[in-house]
Amino acid sequence: MNLFDYVADRWDRLSLQAWLHVSEVVQSTIIAAVLGVLIGVAVYRSPIGSALATALASTILTVPSFALLGLLIPVVGLGATPTVIALVLYALLPITRNTIVGLGGVDPAIRDAARGIGMSRVGVLARVELRLAWPAILAGMRVATQMLMGIAVIAAYAKGPGLGGEVFSGLVRAGSANATNQALAGTLGVVILALLLEAVYFLIARFTVSRGIRG
């Protein structure tokens, strides 16, 4: 059986796993984006706060994903929960850091003008600062998503959903029938999905970044 026959034969299961894979990565990115932007907004005015938040998020990223999952399993059990927690934690660094950089990069004269013509603090943040930092935040989300596509494969170790299960069981059964096909189908599936998400990000940027600040 070649790879194409294998994929055609197991399409139902593979497509479901692919969907679950994308779904957990996207949901984790969104949760991380909300948290990351909130953290960024909270700390960007203070140099110490910014340094602390970035350092903390970096530290999380240095923990090997395998180890992090291993540590989470005794606390929250197996399945989707430890997977999502791990993915969100890993996505925090690029998003938080880019939010801080993006907000810090807003020209002080523009902030001054916004205050000077009578926008409230919240108004300045929502209508000016976040809008101007949005391309940087979006870039952070994009990096986070690409990273999570790979890390989500490891999450199969915690019995999380997604294509990781295919890769793992293919590798465990190495030598037996269809083992290579199974591992390959999982791996290629992740690559293809990552490229698709990349295209989605391109479209989001196209429609949500003002033409006035598009590079």
């Binding site: 020209d107 004269a109 523009i110 001054d112 003008a113 916004a114 205050r115 000077g116 013509i117 009578g118 926008m119 409230s120 000016v128 809008r131 101007l132 003002s210 006035g212 600040i213």
Partner: peptide, 22 residues
């Protein structure tokens, strides 16, 4: 302060226009 500023026009060097607004 915000109410006050809406009644006082404010123009600065290099205009301080919002680049993402038309």
């Amino acid at each position: 302060a915000d109410t006050l500023r809406r009644k006082v026009g404010y123009a600065i060097q290099q205009a301080g226009l919002f680049p993402h607004f038309t």
